[in-house]
Write a protein that binds this DNA or RNA. Structure first.
Lengths: 347, 347
DNA sequence: TGACGAATTTGGATCGTTCCAATTATGAAT
DNA sequence: ATTCATAATTGGAACGATCCAAATTCGTCA
């Protein structure tokens, strides 16, 4: 029942060469003769040999693993991010070790420790809420390349890849103002995160720029989820002076806001303008199609992976902070397309 | 710059004990004296020691890794499944190695091979479309415990955990028939999968049972995604005799169908009944809330993980096929709740 | 034929842990 | 003081790959 493990020595014996030669074949060295290589490869297949990475890692004290830890895998933004990372990591001959922290610092500590024990060559982290520079200190001191994505952490001394949340929010609010809206809400998200802070400042700055009042009353936090969007819009509609438009913390919130609007017999787009943030895949196909600030999660994952690989290959690179640009994708949920259609019909 | 790796020997030297004792402490053996243990643990922390799992795995020829491979991580059903697996795997002291195949057989072969090389103790696989028993043969022969989830593969000789797709579909269609619908469509999904087959048979059997015509015309396949749902309902509405209700292949398709309905100024629930399949988190909060057949993805992940752990601990267990039960969750998208409310208002 | 450089091949030594059998310390009982 | 069981500790020998320096083969040219 219990099969004997087939090792390089077994291959060597069966193929009539030394284990060193087999090892050379395994790593595709050009030193070995073509016919020897063929013979070895044949016996490898024949005996059903399985490479033992633990042994190799031990000797080389490095692995071909890169770790990615995300704070919420059930959020499709992060699932897509992970997929983006995977595509480039994979074609560079690494394998991805993906862990989910569910926003829990303690769990994050565990998974990072586990990854270090497995000897990952680098780590891409979308930190859990509340992560501080001190939490990452032992990791960065160890010299393992780390790239932070989505959420940056001040003074952590590692590279990061975030998106230009401030500019994106400003662009969205400017667009709303151009369309004639004056009471614009900012809905959803946890107020104690850097991303919320940046998007909210962008919202506020656009308001100020247009000489509009930027009172706090129209900023309503909530969980950054669909359900959170529902509660946020409900709260917003209780206000004595209701908003006529909203920039949402992310697309999930925006979808929730649309749901909540419909529950009050208001049609998103026509009766109330809503803009999301992220541009997840569903944004395009939803009805009405969601106007949103596109941050391209897959592309972000890819760029993060490229940045990490660069650092791994460079041995030691300076920490660089990249702020990815972002663009407003105007679809239907902000009412623009409908108005255009109306205008065309009139002309 | 390059730090010397701290090993058990360094710890041993610093703590004034032998490396064997340190090893004993590391694995929490009761053989070691309390004060020695404390001393060793102190030096471990002091020197910033990082356990080397590659070395341990090599020696014990086994790892505390379990692998999970899913066919589409951007589908939240599978993301939730993975989260469910993670919770139980983690509390059993294993770490999860998650890979995404994007429905590609070739990629699946690669990730499974990679996992074997890393010496996973077991594997949970949601196979890519078109996977055959032969593809898994080398894996099962190697004696690594494998559990198939979601999609079963005939004669693969491994355990599987699927859900009762046939019964779920029947229950949904029966419900639609009770509500007075006579022209019911089955929308979305790839017709060449076992899951599609089972759900479609359930749909058909319920129709037959009620003496209704089960012609092929109302069965319309598509990609099992939101976008696929949009195209499927469009096709359905082109039919000369339009359906008044639809059972959808999964929730993503159902959401797409709702979108498509709205694009034609039809309100899902009120004007057209739609039922989904899976019960992903958004089903509850969507507007209208989606009536759907609940398969509880997280719970499924948990049960799959438990099944796998049982097999790992048992050494060698018989392959068992578990078919999880499933229940219809009636919400608003099938019109039921609205009618009930109407009835109550009248009474 | 012998010499020489290039192309191939090879035998240890080694990575950091665990396991085993054996040893030493401890303390109670005689 | 001696014996004996128990508790605690310990030195090698693995595990399966890679790496290095050295050895072997080969073809070519003097």
């Amino acid at each position: 029942m219990v099969k004997e493990r087939v090792t390089v020595v077994d291959i060597a014996r069966a193929a009539g060469v030394s284990k060193s030669t087999v090892s050379l074949v395994l790593q595709g060295s050009s030193l070995v003769n073509e016919v020897t290589r063929a013979k070895v490869n044949a016996t490898i297949r024949e005996l059903g040999y399985v490479y033992n990475r633990s042994a190799a890692n031990l000797r080389q004290s490095k692995s071909k693993i890169i770790g990615i830890v995300v704070n919420d895998l059930t959020n499709s933004f992060f699932a897509e991010l992970a997929v983006g990372v995977d595509t480039v990591v994979q074609s560079a001959g690494f394998v991805q070790f993906l862990a989910n922290t569910s926003e829990k610092i303690e769990r994050q500590r565990e998974v990072v420790a586990s990854m270090r024990e497995h000897g990952v060559s680098g780590l891409i982290i979308s930190p859990a809420r509340g992560t501080e520079a001190a939490d990452l200190a032992p990791l960065v001191e160890s010299g393992i390349p780390v790239v932070l994505v989505v959420r940056d952490i001040a003074d952590a001394g590692v590279s990061s890849l975030t998106s230009d949340n401030h500019a994106g929010a400003m662009a969205a609010v400017r667009h709303l103002i151009e369309r004639g809206h004056r009471r614009i809400a900012f809905l959803g998200g946890f107020p104690d995160t850097a991303v919320f802070e940046a998007r909210m400042r962008g919202y506020r700055d656009a308001l100020l720029e247009a000489g509009l009042d930027a009172a706090d009353g129209l900023v309503i936090g909530s969980a950054p989820s669909r359900a959170g969007g529902v509660t946020a819009i409900e709260q917003a509609m209780m206000l004595s002076e209701r908003p006529t438009a909203a920039l949402c913390f992310n697309d999930a919130v925006a979808f929730g806001v649309c749901d909540g609007l419909r529950a009050r017999r208001l049609e998103p787009g026509a009766d109330f303008a809503v803009i999301g943030f992220d541009d997840v895949i569903e944004a395009k196909t939803a009805v009405p199609a969601l106007t949103t600030v596109s941050v391209d999660p897959q592309g972000m994952g890819q760029r993060a992976a490229e940045l990490l690989l660069k650092q791994i290959n460079a041995g030691k690179a300076e920490a660089e902070s990249i702020i990815g640009s972002v663009r407003l994708v105007v679809r239907q949920s902000c009412g623009a397309a409908i108005e255009r259609r109306t205008r065309e019909a009139l002309s």
